[in-house]
Amino acid sequence: MLKLNIKNETSRLRAVVLGTAENNGPAPLLDECYDPKSREHVLAGTYPKEEDMIPEMESVAAVFNKYDVAVYRPEIIKDYNQIFSRDIAFVIEDKFIRANILPDRDKEILAIEHVWSQIPKENRITLPEECHIEGGDVMPWNDYIFVGTYSGEDYPDYITARTNMDAVIALQELFPNKKVKSFELRKSNTNAKDNALHLDCCFQPIGKDKAILHKNGFLVESEYEWLVSYFGQENIFEINKEEMYNMNSNVFSISENVIISEKNFTRLNTWLRAQGFTVEEVPYQEIAKQEGLLRCSTMPLIRD
């Protein structure tokens, strides 16, 4: 049995699910794209190829290996995108919560049955059908659970709106001792530079008390300001629109001191090192073309 334990984003990682790019299938048709960035690359003929993405994911597996992290991989489904394991489920404390994701992606959860079956039944949670939620929008941070959401009346019009207020309420009921704090995110089906697909596309806590943040990802300025005052201006690395588009906030913490980051994030990686972090650089720019990066393709199971 797996003894799940996730209380925040940065404690020492011991076990993780890492997605896979194997048997990823052909580039999607335009009407099959889930996000504006994939759409952009389909139109430009630059949608990432399987043979370029597999080595990128294996470079992350190698870093986990170096730090003695147990790595679980999904079973391969033929011609199916299984890169973004963060979307399909997430762990808070000892609970494994299945995401209610786009119906087209239901098979992805079946591919990690070998993980699901090792979790005590009482800790496997499936939220009610009306709760839409994906792991990229959910961040446990000690006493808090930060959740990205969208509550506009036009919610059904956005394929990029993945987490609703019903899910925020359900999380609060599930974890009465935590403070669930939601943030309204900016959504666009057509412009990747104006779309915060998930909370981790415009914000992520790092270390003990620091954060990466992008103001324009938030629809409500006071919610952005709350994060600035919570972490303190001096502890925040504010990324610009281009850096958000390139997914600079979507790095991944192995511990409070070690962060996996994309090798082209020069400004961010320089700042992280200046703050005393060890930065493990990996190539990930092909995977980034699908509007997801390192946090999106990992689902932590156990942290110390």
Rank of each mutant, 00 (worst) to 15 (best):
L18Y: 08
L18K: 00
L18H: 04
L18V: 00
G19E: 13
T20F: 00
T20W: 02
A21L: 14
A21V: 15
E22C: 04
E22V: 04
N23C: 08
G25P: 11
P26L: 07
P26K: 11
A27V: 06
A27W: 10
A27G: 12
P28N: 00
P28T: 03
L30F: 09
L30W: 10
D31E: 14
E32C: 02
E32R: 02
C33N: 10
C33G: 05
C33H: 09
C33V: 12
Y34H: 08
Y34N: 06
Y34C: 07
D35H: 01
D35N: 10
P36G: 02
K37S: 11
S38E: 08
S38T: 07
S38V: 02
E40G: 03
E40I: 01
H41E: 08
H41D: 04
V42T: 03
V42M: 00
L43M: 15
T46D: 03
Y47N: 01
Y47S: 03
Y47L: 00
E51Y: 14
E51L: 08
E51G: 06
D52E: 14
D52R: 11
D52A: 13
D52Q: 11
M53G: 08
M53F: 09
I54Q: 05
P55H: 10
M57T: 07
M57D: 11
M57Q: 14
E58N: 01
V60R: 00
A61L: 12
A62R: 14
V63Y: 01
F64K: 05
N65P: 10
N65W: 12
K66G: 05
Y67E: 03
D68L: 12
V69S: 04
V69Q: 12
R73S: 09
P74F: 05
I76H: 04
I76C: 10
K78I: 07
K78N: 12
D79E: 12
D79L: 00
Y80M: 07
Q82N: 15
I83D: 05
F84N: 08
F84D: 01
S85D: 15
R86H: 14
R86G: 14
A89H: 11
F90A: 12
F90Y: 15
I92N: 04
E93Q: 14
F96G: 06
I97S: 08
R98S: 06
A99F: 07
A99K: 06
I101C: 06
I101Y: 04
I101R: 07
I101P: 00
L102S: 10
D104S: 01
D104M: 02
R105C: 13
E108C: 02
E108P: 05
I109C: 01
L110E: 14
A111K: 01
E113G: 15
E113R: 15
E113F: 13
H114C: 03
H114D: 13
S117H: 10
S117I: 06
Q118D: 08
Q118Y: 08
I119K: 05
K121M: 15
K121E: 15
E122D: 05
E122W: 02
N123L: 01
N123R: 02
N123V: 06
R124V: 15
